[in-house]
Design a protein around this nucleic acid. Structure first.
Lengths: 158, 158
DNA sequence: CAATCAGGTTTAATAATGCAACCAGACTGG
DNA sequence: CCAGTCTGGTTGCATTATTAAACCTGATTG
């Protein structure tokens, strides 16, 4: 089998997250959802992807608890896709992606929006990692520690 | 043409970031690189991906300025792949992905590591978004503002 | 009741992925 | 210095995934 090597059983949390929404379109769907898109057609015209792909992506995102379908909202008997709490939790990842592009993109002048505080319209601060006692941490200041009670991911023994 | 719809010309910074390292393996390669992997073979055994895929991924990551090749380091006349500053800038994204899994994964007991402050071994704080005057912001507290001097991404006119 | 639209599914083409085999240059041992 | 082996790939081919376009169904509009 040449299957697409699912990372679901991996013990790395980064791989596990990518397994849930790490493909090309899913994050963009989530981005649009967090910007207010709700209807199939809205996503489709915004993203310009094929309808079958959108349909499967929406379905798996619903299955995985990122999106949920709610019945109506504007009267018509259709469904809408809105983010669950689990889906809203992806927001920091979107912000991190955005800020990376703002800092490192080769052509930053092609970026047409920036993220601002709704209250006063000022740009938000850059995401930063802090220690428990408030020191700013870079990658080199951190390390990975094995979890004590890490239940091994199931592996076929033989 | 049924090409893979590159997002490079998109004006959304999230899409632009995904275009650079948003595929299945690239982020995992970057993760391993930030954990100390340097050699082709290290990446291959760590990730378990096909060598041809690894070769093309490493090549494009170098082309895009995420990784750079440095000559030797252990004497032998081979090359090593290390993160550039642009690549190290991806670290917050990895942290955000990790923290999402820690918070929302269905089987958090299968996660075997957690990120700690190297200085005292304590877990790091959760990434959080702040306004310029220090208020904690959720997605709903933010909005997108068009950039004044947004040079339009080139589009074929007709 | 014909037309249209939202929200998909099906079909057939093309592109990407995965595995295994192959290959070249650097090292190793005798 | 010659065979064997390791690193770091490339090449070929089978399997998947992605895509555009056609089609379909139920709801709404005229």
């Amino acid at each position: 089998m040449v299957k697409r090597t699912s990372l679901a059983g991996d013990s790395c949390p980064i791989a596990r997250a990518l397994d849930v929404f790490g493909d090309w379109w899913s994050l963009l769907i989530i981005r649009d959802a967090s910007l207010g898109c709700r209807r199939f057609g809205e996503f489709q015209t915004s993203l310009g992807l094929a309808k079958n792909i959108l349909a499967t992506r929406l379905r798996t995102l619903v299955e995985r608890g990122i999106l949920k379908m709610i019945p109506a909202s504007d009267g018509s008997a259709y469904q809408e896709y809105v983010l669950s709490p689990k889906g809203r939790g992806i927001f920091p990842i979107l912000v991190a992606l955005r800020q990376w592009s703002e800092e490192f993109d080769e052509h930053p002048n092609e970026i047409d929006t920036f993220l601002v505080d709704r209250e006063n319209g000022k740009p938000v601060q850059k995401l930063a990692l802090y220690s428990q006692d408030g020191r700013l941490l870079s990658a080199a200041d951190t390390t990975l520690k094995p979890r004590a009670a890490a239940k091994r991911a199931r592996r076929v023994p033989a």
